[in-house]
């Protein structure tokens, strides 16, 4: 079945390959190999991308440890109270009588109750937001090894792209921002003293693209150039 699928996919390419006669057995074999290599390469790239996403996404360790401590403390305190009621733990373990008195004395409209409830209501959505994947502080590099992941920091990338933009004759300074959560783009704000060079933004774009090609990021980003002409 897999072989049939590969042969089916490979057929149009085989026709266009030199010596790939389509009907000849050798041509189909070559097409199969090519298709298998291409499919294998795509799969390896996908695995490499998954590994990079897994490795470089924020771990939220501090939030996780905090939430775990909260759950442990709350569960432990309530357990101690209830196990004291059941006489599993001796009376000294928890001030059960005082806790019950407090719970019986406070009403739902009490400022203390509202304060605690408000804090919980605010902390809950904050934790839910923290559980979202979030923005990685590093940008993964393209690769085909499914067991390898590489990344460069956002600040370092911004700096190296700014250096590339400043390398264009006439550009005095440049500032780079990485924007967009879904439509990812690189915004380069370059300042130039030249007023008679209409192609300067193309040159800056070309320089930034060349530098990006050297870095080889995993995700393609559009490059927006915003030129600021100095001197009036």
């Amino acid at each position: 079945m897999a072989s049939f699928t590969l042969r089916y996919i490979a057929a149009p390419w085989v026709m266009s390959l030199p010596g790939g006669g389509g009907t000849s057995h050798g041509g189909v074999r070559m097409g199969e190999t090519l298709a298998a290599e291409l499919l294998g390469g795509a799969q390896a790239r996908q695995q490499a991308r998954r590994l990079a996403e897994q490795e470089f996404r924020p771990r939220r360790t501090a939030v996780g440890v905090g939430a775990a401590l909260l759950v442990t403390a709350a569960g432990g305190a309530v357990s101690a109270e209830l196990l004291t009621v059941l006489d599993v733990l001796p009376d000294g373990w928890s001030p059960m009588a005082r806790s019950m008195a407090v719970l019986r004395g406070l009403t739902w409209a009490d400022p203390w109750t509202l304060g605690v409830a408000g804090t919980m209501a605010a902390a809950g959505p904050a934790l839910l937001l923290a559980a979202l994947p979030g923005r990685a502080r590093t940008l993964p590099l393209a690769g085909e090894d499914p067991l390898m992941a590489g990344a460069v920091g956002r600040a370092a990338l911004r700096r190296t792209l700014a250096d590339a933009a400043v390398g264009v004759p006439g550009v005095v300074r440049a500032r780079v921002r990485l924007r967009g959560r879904f439509r990812k783009r690189i915004v380069v704000r370059a300042a130039t003293g030249y007023r008679n060079r209409p192609d300067i933004s193309d040159l800056v774009r070309a320089a930034v693209h060349a530098r990006l090609a050297e870095v080889e990021l995993m995700q393609w980003r559009r490059v927006d150039i915003r030129l600021n002409r100095l001197g009036g």
Partner: peptide, 20 residues
């Protein structure tokens, strides 16, 4: 780990919201 954070957040939000 994220599932735990999300569950804790949901429980806190539900309890706090109900209290309010």
């Amino acid at each position: 780990m994220r599932v735990g954070i999300a569950l804790t957040g949901t429980a806190l939000a539900a309890a706090g919201g109900a209290g309010l």
